[in-house]
Design a protein around this nucleic acid. Structure first.
Lengths: 121, 121
DNA sequence: TGCTTATATAAGCAGGTGCGCATACTCTCG
DNA sequence: CGAGAGTATGCGCACCTGCTTATATAAGCA
């Protein structure tokens, strides 16, 4: 059994998941992008897709001769949970405001990246 | 430069970070636990600590002959941010999303391409 | 049917990474 | 100062993982 982080340790696989974040995408479509960006072959991409499948990060759906891949978020949720014990490091005393954070997260999007002290309402 | 996930790909390093989640801890202290659990040597642990240091996951503080390690949450926050695009899969209105997903998302294909954190309840 | 497109699998090889062993620092204390 | 704990580093090696090439499977099309 492989840990979620073992899967995410590979930049190609991360990229594939990023491409899949917006929604379903065909294997060849993913392949085209990844091959261009990383300079690897089609089989290489296919192998990564297999790893993602086997680890439960992605699901496949056949449509004709094409294979449509989609994200299965469950393992990513595990990763999210793994981060829980550390989240207070940057959330500080904002634990109570987690609700608000989830509601309007776009506020942080424009905030300074390196600045520790996050927005305080 | 190594990506955060490359660091977290190793189970020993993950364990070290877990041990560090509660607070500062001496290298030897960490070593004792990790050596016991993984059956590896002291230098091996030290090497992992070095990787964590170099990647910014941990900071060291000398106290006498001991080295006290602590978590630096910055890289973990990056990981947290990386998860943002997927968080809606399990965070917001899971049932509604699941319904839409199950019903067939082809409808959305032509409509709204980027659906990040749109809805405001 | 046979050719083509789309994708997956097999086999083999190369580079990286984690490990153990040995050793080098570097404080502290007697 | 010398001994000894606590920790880090250098080196060499085995193994794992990802890559390429070659090929298989399967659907669409003429």
């Amino acid at each position: 059994m492989v840990h979620a982080f073992d899967i995410l340790g590979d930049p190609v696989r991360r990229r594939i998941l990023e491409l899949l974040a917006d929604g379903e995408r065909a294997a060849g479509d993913l392949g085209a992008v990844v091959q261009a960006e990383f300079g690897i072959s089609q089989p290489a991409v296919s192998q990564h897709l297999r790893v993602l499948r086997d680890a439960g990060f992605a699901t496949v759906r056949a449509e004709g001769t094409r294979r449509l891949y989609a994200v299965d978020a469950e393992p990513l949720r595990q990763v999210d949970e793994w981060l829980d014990p550390y989240r207070h490091f940057w959330n500080q005393r904002l634990d109570a405001l987690a609700t608000e954070l989830a509601r309007g997260k776009r506020e942080r999007r424009g905030a300074a990246p390196t600045t520790k002290g996050t927005d305080t309402p």
